[in-house]
């Protein structure tokens, strides 16, 4: 028994959580610094934020924003499609990883979580699932329909991942804050009341990425022999998914790796699905 424990400990020395947090921090710092670099130092190598980001000649455009622009204006524009390609390909292969590894809202939520857990001295936040998860699809459809009715992609303007970047930019350049930043505060308040409430049920961008990632190649798989059904993974999951019951294979999983870190027996791991 002792020997087995040691071998298991060896097996789980690698943890995704610090790496992911570093990546979230890095992504947040990137969008926090770029407005200053651009407007004050006129250094335009890195430009924009998570609505549209350019690193040198490499351009990214958020797929939801691009899709709505195409749908509402009914015009195709080559560079826009090229910019959308990389995020779409990432979502197709890796799933909703933008949300869990890059999104600034994720960073802020995680920061709040870390502070709360430090104060409370607990390991996991209690959580429930008051609404059906499928709400996120309706959020996506609703957003696109609203954009088509209004005739402008106005609600991507209020989409929190981009909004954080824009608020930072407005603060750096114009030394004020725009009113729409209230949305970010509301999202974070919702997070206090329920773990990742907005991300889980309401984020249209998350909905689109989840939709693209339904048949993703990178999944979290459980090894039946090692699982002891302790339920830790469910408590660790920011979405309250239950990897024990195979819910990590559902479209709602965003591949953050929290359950892998939490698993004491090493039963869960990332796996590259081959066709």
């Amino acid at each position: 028994m002792v020997e087995k424990k040691i071998s298991l400990k060896k097996k789980r020395h690698f943890r995704y959580r610090p790496i992911r947090f570093l990546m979230l921090l890095g992504a947040f710092l990137l969008i926090a610094i770029t407005p200053y670099l651009n407007s004050k130092l006129h250094f335009n190598f890195v430009q924009g934020w998570f609505q549209s980001l350019s690193i040198g000649k490499l351009w990214f455009v958020s797929p939801l924003e691009g899709l709505e622009s195409i749908l509402t204006s009914r015009l195709l524009y080559g560079p826009l499609l090229v910019g959308m390609a990389i995020p779409v390909i990432i979502a197709l292969f890796l799933g909703r990883v933008f949300c869990s590894w890059i999104c600034p809202i994720s960073f802020l939520s995680e920061l709040i979580d870390r502070i709360i857990l430090k104060i409370k001295g607990k390991r996991y936040r209690k959580d429930a699932n008051p609404l059906p998860r499928s709400l996120i699809w309706y959020a996506l459809i609703g957003e696109i329909l609203l954009a088509l009715v209004i005739g402008a992609p106005i609600f991507v303007f209020l989409s929190p991942p981009g909004l954080v970047g824009r608020e930072i930019m407005v603060a750096t350049i114009f030394h004020t804050l725009a009113i729409e930043g209230v949305v970010v505060i509301m999202v974070l308040l919702m997070h206090l009341f329920q773990k990742r409430f907005f991300c889980k049920y309401l984020c249209p961008l998350g909905g689109l990425l989840a939709l693209l990632g339904i048949k993703r190649r990178l999944v979290i798989q459980k090894e039946e022999e090692l699982c002891v059904s302790c339920g830790t993974c469910k408590r660790a999951c920011p979405f309250t998914l239950d990897p024990e019951k195979g819910q990590a294979l559902s479209p709602y999983c965003w591949n953050c790796g929290e359950c892998i870190d939490s698993c004491k027996t090493g039963a869960l791991n990332f796996k590259w699905k081959s066709l």
């Binding site: 509402t72 204006s73 930019m169 009113i179």
Partner: peptide, 24 residues
């Protein structure tokens, strides 16, 4: 208004800060 995705990159890149993003 239908084509612009409000990414604000033109605002950010403008060296004279003459471009202003309209508010809500």
């Amino acid at each position: 208004p239908s084509k612009c995705i409000r990414c604000g990159r033109c605002v950010e890149v403008c060296p004279y800060n003459c471009i202003v993003p309209l508010d809500i």
